[in-house]
């Protein structure tokens, strides 16, 4: 099987994640879609590592996972803080600067 199939899958998952970020209104779901995009990028790192025959891609994918974990911790803390003050987890309600 051609390894490029994994790259096509990765591109598909990344696109689906990007659509989710735009159309969903719940901040937690938006965040999960960002995670999906990061995972799709990781899949292409691993695939490129295999295509090129060295492990650098896997090391970068490993670093991406650590960064994603940091991002989840801080992002969810922000969502909880917003929820505590505004009683809503919708991205449309966080418009304090507007009015």
């Amino acid at each position: 099987m051609n390894s490029a199939n994994y790259l096509y899958l990765s591109a598909l998952l990344f696109t689906i994640g990007a659509v989710g970020v735009v159309i969903r209104r719940n901040a937690i779901v938006v965040f999960m879609c960002v995670e999906l995009m990061l995972n799709a990028a990781n899949l292409s790192f691993v695939t490129f590592s295999r295509i090129n025959g060295n492990l650098d891609g896997q090391v970068v994918a490993f670093f991406t996972m650590v960064v994603a974990a940091c991002e989840v911790v801080v992002g969810l803390a922000i969502i909880v803080t917003i929820y505590r003050s505004r009683r809503s987890a919708s991205v449309d309600d966080a418009n304090l600067l507007k009015r």
């Binding site: 390894s3 994994y6 937690i28 965040f31 999960m32 995670e35 995972n39 990781n42 691993v46 695939t47 590592s49 295999r50 896997q58 994918a61 490993f62 996972m65 994603a68 974990a69 989840v72 911790v73 969810l76």
Partner: peptide
């Protein structure tokens, strides 16, 4: 794809820790 370590880390970190946090 011969990335056994990353596969295990993916399950432990993502499905284990990150999704539980979510």
């Amino acid at each position: 794809q011969d990335a056994a370590f990353l596969g295990i880390v993916q399950i432990v970190v993502y499905t284990g820790a990150v999704m539980m946090l979510f």
